[in-house]
Simulated assay, not measured.
Amino acid sequence: MIFSKKMTSLSSAIFSELNYKKAELMAQGYEMIDFSIGTPDIPPSPQVMTLLQEECSKLSNYKYAINDTPELLEAVTSWYKHRYDVNISSQEVVSLLGSQSGFAELALCLIDPGDTVLVPVPSYPIFRIGPLLAGAQLHKMPLLKENNFLIDLDAIDEEVARKAKLMIVSYPNNPTTAIAPRDFYIKLVAFAKKYDIIVLHDNAYSELLFDGSVGESFLSIKGAKDIGIEFNSLSKTYSIPGCRIAFAIGNQEIIKGLRILKSHVDYGMFLPFQKVATALLTGSQDYVEVVRHTYYERGKVLVEGLREIGWDIPLPQGSMFVWAPIPKHYTSSLDFTYDLMNKAHVMVVPGISFGEEGEGFVRIALVETEDTIRRAIKAIKKSGLLEK
């Protein structure tokens, strides 16, 4: 049986091997503390679960949604105005069944085989996979520690920039946890206009900043809507990842194209999910602070605890992750990851799985309780892995 050559871009040997090793160790009776998968463990608010139960009990909600409800579109536009001071119309919004599918759909809308797409590295895998499925040629934009993990726009070759059709940007960033100052976005918009590049800004973590600053929207920059769109997800903000609720917002022509494509591949978001999203965006935002504070405290417990036992890693600026340099006596993030699994029974993700530029780091997801984090720190200390 012969599959499409595109399938080769979907293989993830590292993740498969890690899962196999985890199962093997658990079969031997070891308890694994898993910081690898970035799935929020914080429950949604009780109000969300109550509303979802109520809406799922209504037979009228089981028909095809087809389109976004007027109430949902109004909620998104109002939230963007209130939260980011960005004016958008209902024609500049379309819901996504999660940002993950949105990346693939946007690429299919914009990219012809051979088109150049600028992709940050290290990066979340779908940033690369979406364009690759559409036949794109990828050009890497390295996120380097010496640049505070910001894209160096000046380092992009002018010939490459002139060829580029799409550029993917994401701050707060997964996996590096970096945030971008407003000056960066101003320069980004000018760069994209100069070279006629469409910008997709993934803004999944704008509500999860830990340094007292407030996340902002790429669309708040003058001229941004002329050249780009933004994805915004409710998954992490409200801790409802399984509901798959996200939005594409911005340039009206791009949104129109996405809406047309979606009309051929899905029949809209489940109506109870639309009702939940509307309620979340128009209601109290107090629970967002609960979610943010939980990740902040977990990050602080993890970083301070690891520093005490000799693993010096920086506090995350935002997101729900820690981007940790591997100990100096290691040269391979994969080797260190396997040693953590075998000797401390703690799971992380090797930086190399986010691209070659991620080598030298591991990503730790803040998806365990503070007590479990403390147990993991004790296990790492006992393993002796931090000793030269």
Rank of each mutant, 00 (worst) to 15 (best):
T176G: 13
A134S: 08
E370G: 05
H345P: 00
K388C: 04
Y330W: 12
H82G: 06
N148F: 15
S233A: 09
I309G: 07
G130K: 02
P181Q: 06
T77I: 07
L52A: 10
G299M: 09
I179E: 15
K193M: 11
M1S: 15
P316Y: 12
R83M: 02
F35I: 10
S90G: 00
P40T: 13
L166P: 08
S319Q: 13
E17S: 07
D202C: 07
T337D: 00
I352W: 04
N232A: 05
Q137H: 15
V288N: 08
F270C: 02
L219Y: 00
G38Q: 07
K343Y: 10
L166Q: 08
V93C: 09
L138W: 08
P316L: 04
S101K: 06
Y62C: 10
Q274F: 04
H82A: 10
L10S: 05
F354I: 09
Y267F: 15
G212Q: 05
D211I: 03
L59N: 13
E159V: 09
T176I: 05
R375V: 06
D34L: 02
P122S: 05
E159C: 09
S16Q: 10
V76F: 06
K328L: 06
K194Q: 13
P325Y: 09
L10P: 01
D41W: 08
Y20F: 00
L96R: 14
D339L: 02
P181S: 08
D85E: 07
I326E: 15
H264R: 15
M7F: 15
S57I: 07
I88D: 09
M347I: 03
